[in-house]
Amino acid sequence: MSERSLPELDAVVEETLRSAELEHEHPGQGRFVVTLPGTKKLKTVVGLTIGAHALTIEAFVCRQPDENREQLWAWLLQHNARSYGVSWSIDSVGDVYLTGRLPHAVITPEEIDRLLGSVLSHADDHFNTLLEIGFGTSIRREWDWRVKRGESLRNLEAFAAFADPARRPRDPQG
């Protein structure tokens, strides 16, 4: 297959995003910022950059964990084997991302859709698990604080199984 030009590849990505009716910005040729709507993670912002040889994708998922870093890193590595087109990664401060690269030859509307679908499913399906592992103590503390003040727990309901003292497993050590 002959080399495809940056303008040609840019047009493929632009048309794919427009056809899919995805919210996106196009700050420059070969650069896109896409917002994927979710249910657990309400939105995932994805950067797409067409480089000299590949399309790079990067999506921020959550900030560095407050606790259980090694447990979270192990979870991410174990789930990389099940990922399509993207892998879990961390940056120099420990923030969690989904990242990937596609060679120019396979940049098609179908492949872009498949790749964005992979990002969305991984970020959205696993978001609460990542928060429970890396921020469980903070979430439990927030739950308790809201209960004491009579505040709404609506946006914490996804964590009720481990945050609500009535549902928490009893600690055998006290």
Score class of each variant (00 low, 15 high):
residue 57 I to P: 00
residue 108 T to D: 02
residue 61 V to R: 03
residue 81 A to H: 13
residue 65 P to Y: 02
residue 82 R to S: 11
residue 153 L to S: 09
residue 51 G to L: 09
residue 138 S to A: 15
residue 63 R to A: 13
residue 120 L to M: 14
residue 79 H to Q: 14
residue 69 R to S: 06
residue 54 A to H: 11
residue 100 G to N: 09
residue 109 P to A: 07
residue 62 C to S: 08
residue 61 V to A: 04
residue 159 F to N: 03
residue 123 A to T: 08
residue 73 W to S: 10
residue 125 D to C: 06
residue 55 L to K: 06
residue 125 D to M: 10
residue 121 S to R: 12
residue 113 D to F: 06
residue 70 E to I: 07
residue 136 G to K: 09
residue 34 V to M: 06
residue 61 V to E: 02
residue 42 L to H: 13
residue 104 H to V: 12
residue 152 S to P: 07
residue 112 I to W: 00
residue 83 S to P: 00
residue 71 Q to I: 10
residue 142 E to G: 08
residue 145 W to R: 15
residue 109 P to L: 09
residue 91 D to P: 01
residue 136 G to M: 09
residue 84 Y to T: 04
residue 130 L to E: 02
residue 48 L to N: 05
residue 119 V to F: 05
residue 103 P to L: 14
residue 87 S to W: 00
residue 46 V to H: 08
residue 144 D to W: 01
residue 64 Q to D: 11
residue 113 D to R: 15
residue 140 R to D: 07
residue 164 D to A: 12
residue 113 D to M: 09
residue 86 V to H: 04
residue 45 V to E: 12
residue 144 D to E: 13
residue 141 R to K: 12
residue 61 V to P: 04
residue 98 L to I: 04
residue 82 R to W: 14
residue 130 L to M: 15
residue 139 I to V: 13
residue 36 L to R: 08
residue 133 I to Q: 07
residue 142 E to T: 12
residue 34 V to Q: 09
residue 37 P to K: 15
residue 104 H to L: 03
residue 134 G to T: 06
residue 95 D to L: 03
residue 52 A to M: 04
residue 127 F to I: 09
residue 75 W to R: 10
residue 50 I to S: 00
residue 117 G to M: 04
residue 133 I to K: 07
residue 75 W to A: 12
residue 59 A to C: 06
residue 128 N to D: 15
residue 147 V to S: 00
residue 40 K to A: 13
residue 75 W to G: 05
residue 46 V to P: 01
residue 91 D to L: 04
residue 144 D to K: 13
residue 123 A to C: 07
residue 108 T to N: 06
residue 121 S to P: 01
residue 111 E to K: 14
residue 139 I to P: 11
residue 158 A to E: 08
residue 92 S to K: 10
residue 142 E to C: 11
residue 156 L to P: 01
residue 86 V to E: 05
residue 32 F to Q: 02
residue 83 S to N: 14
residue 110 E to M: 08
residue 77 L to N: 10
residue 155 N to V: 00
residue 86 V to P: 00
residue 86 V to A: 03
residue 115 L to N: 00
residue 153 L to I: 12
residue 40 K to E: 13
residue 116 L to C: 06
residue 138 S to H: 10
residue 160 A to G: 03
residue 63 R to F: 07
residue 100 G to T: 10
residue 110 E to V: 07
residue 100 G to D: 07
residue 92 S to Q: 14
residue 38 G to S: 05
residue 98 L to Q: 04
residue 33 V to C: 02
residue 111 E to H: 04
residue 121 S to L: 08
residue 35 T to K: 11
residue 106 V to C: 05
residue 116 L to Q: 05
residue 79 H to A: 04
residue 58 E to N: 13
residue 68 N to A: 10
residue 45 V to D: 02
residue 142 E to H: 08
residue 103 P to C: 11
residue 115 L to Q: 11
residue 99 T to E: 14
residue 51 G to I: 05
residue 94 G to H: 11
residue 83 S to F: 02
residue 73 W to K: 05
residue 68 N to L: 13
residue 104 H to M: 09
residue 40 K to S: 10
residue 105 A to N: 05
residue 47 G to V: 06
residue 118 S to T: 07
residue 41 K to T: 00
residue 42 L to K: 13
